[in-house]
Design a protein around this nucleic acid. Sequence first.
DNA 1: AACGCTAATCTAAACGTTTCGAATCTGTCA
DNA 2: TGACAGATTCGAAACGTTTAGATTAGCGTT
Lengths: 339, 339
Amino acid sequence: MLHVAEAARVSVATVSALLNGTATVSPELTQRIEQAIRDIGYKRNAIARSLKMGTTRTIGLTVPHITNPFFTDVVSVIQQAFDRAGYAVMLCCTDEDLNTQDEQIRLLLDRMVDGLIVARVGDGGILKDIVEDANVPVVLLDRLCEGVDTDAVVLDNRRAVFDAVTYLIHLGHRRIGYITGTSDISPMHDRMIGYREALQVAGLPVAEELVRSGNFHEIDGYNATMQLLSLHDRPSAIFSANNPMVIGTMKAIRDIGLSCPEDISVACFDDFPWSDVFVPQLTTVAQPVQAIGEQAANLLLDRLAGNRDAPPRKLVLKGRLMIRNSCRPLGAVAQSVSA
Amino acid sequence: MLHVAEAARVSVATVSALLNGTATVSPELTQRIEQAIRDIGYKRNAIARSLKMGTTRTIGLTVPHITNPFFTDVVSVIQQAFDRAGYAVMLCCTDEDLNTQDEQIRLLLDRMVDGLIVARVGDGGILKDIVEDANVPVVLLDRLCEGVDTDAVVLDNRRAVFDAVTYLIHLGHRRIGYITGTSDISPMHDRMIGYREALQVAGLPVAEELVRSGNFHEIDGYNATMQLLSLHDRPSAIFSANNPMVIGTMKAIRDIGLSCPEDISVACFDDFPWSDVFVPQLTTVAQPVQAIGEQAANLLLDRLAGNRDAPPRKLVLKGRLMIRNSCRPLGAVAQSVSA
DNA sequence: AACGCTAATCTAAACGTTTCGAATCTGTCA
DNA sequence: TGACAGATTCGAAACGTTTAGATTAGCGTT
């Protein structure tokens, strides 16, 4: 900027004024300055600007796993939204680990991000302090956090699983296996409640041996399914509360020599592009990823626009049961449902 | 830092020296300073530091689509690698558009990223200038760029498709449809060459009506497949050069009332977690995503560590044909291959 | 002719670090 | 005892911006 000012025989203040439109500058100087900028190929240094202004026009986004297609989709939507608003996005993966998450968040704060969108992991950690300090606005994504009172966008997980399990019950299933992630995060907790409620409403017992938990990965789904399938009175249907784990479920079914939906019905949480392409076409609970991402972005952008004092807003969106053909009716006359 | 210095009755220079270990500071002052830091809850401002040091410990990463699982995986690996090295990653999606890409890159450079990893789009654009200015190191990912001479990690695309198509030919297929993305990026260009070479080597004609191109999206694959399948002499196999497009291919096959592999064989580029879970299990060309991501990160980290003058390095990795059961042998006696 | 008003421009002080060279202190050696 | 070396510590300039307040110029009024 100094060089530009010199070349245009002008003070840096004038250059700054022109660039930011904070004061009128005469046509003559405008012309000289613009010429100098072109000649020199000057680019304004955003770091210096950030230092002075106290804002970086950058936000931090942390997710447990970017390879989980649910998060991939949401990240993509959020990225686009902030891009449109002239913000950059720093992406971090916390790998379902609280320490990693705390470290990542610290890293982001050191870099003075203007705001944070967090699909949290573990319980509390540094997040609580940050929200309480209220220096940088935080939006929780997908997962609420005990004792952390801030903007959030989540799904009505209880209801979504309730509907899915009720659907299985209507098909005639009585013993429904349930595979969950670690239950210290709100969606897993709520989904489990949905499962139990659906059984209760239908007057069915909740058999604890039918509930297995794993750590969100394919291998966990595989192991859990193996256990369920080797029960002496094995379930006729399995609901998997997480997308990567359902891959493990399908593999386990195959490896054990059964097939879906003939021998066992399967439904799961989170839709994905492939779910209706192959056989069986998976019955899933689809989350409105577009809306989730956009709402989260809007909440944060609103805070960034200055609306700091409004009370925390919690948006609860609805899931949608995508009925395909991985679940088979069970009854006196077992009629096939597959395509 | 000023506050810390005051609280510890010390100069800011000493605090800085302690924090960076750039000079020895006496045990007594060390103790006072550390106490003050704890009391105040001081965090070093990375922006001010960046301004002074001229480095942000942040890199920029641009990909055409983060929802394409190939890129998702690579992004994930790169993110982890830089995380370990203490760098943050700014992620941008260019949406297969050159203008968007140029804009994103400008945004990143304004923010003074220390380096760039680019899965480019379009041809040249601002990228060429940046590489020539040699101010920030650039690593090309997945896609080379005409006239841009810099570090790069790519696949031997020609060979990978050659192998896959040769496999189809060995199975007895003579009319093999080929669906490509827009050919202005190197992988698509090279893959097409691999296709043609495989046909030539086998002494088969290259029928232009069997080659269709689309814009990387599911819908493009769908349309291309529809066209191929309505040919009066339709192909017995289809190779899709891109992963999202193969979804469209499978849907088109289903919608037209055919089935894979009985009526038509399908193979495609890029493996993904679901490819061997459902029926048919897709035969794919798997890219070594882990290696690609790590190598790209290493190339850039090496430059960032100061090795600026080494000549551009181009790493070419090998794909791997994952033979499953979406391709069926064609012959006098058509024997089934499906599981 | 002196005045005040407006518009345009500039000067200089911040923002929070790092770092160079100078200043101080301690103890050692001639 | 005084000079010197080494170890600590400090003062102040710099990084590239923004911005409040000062300065200047132009011009119509009285």
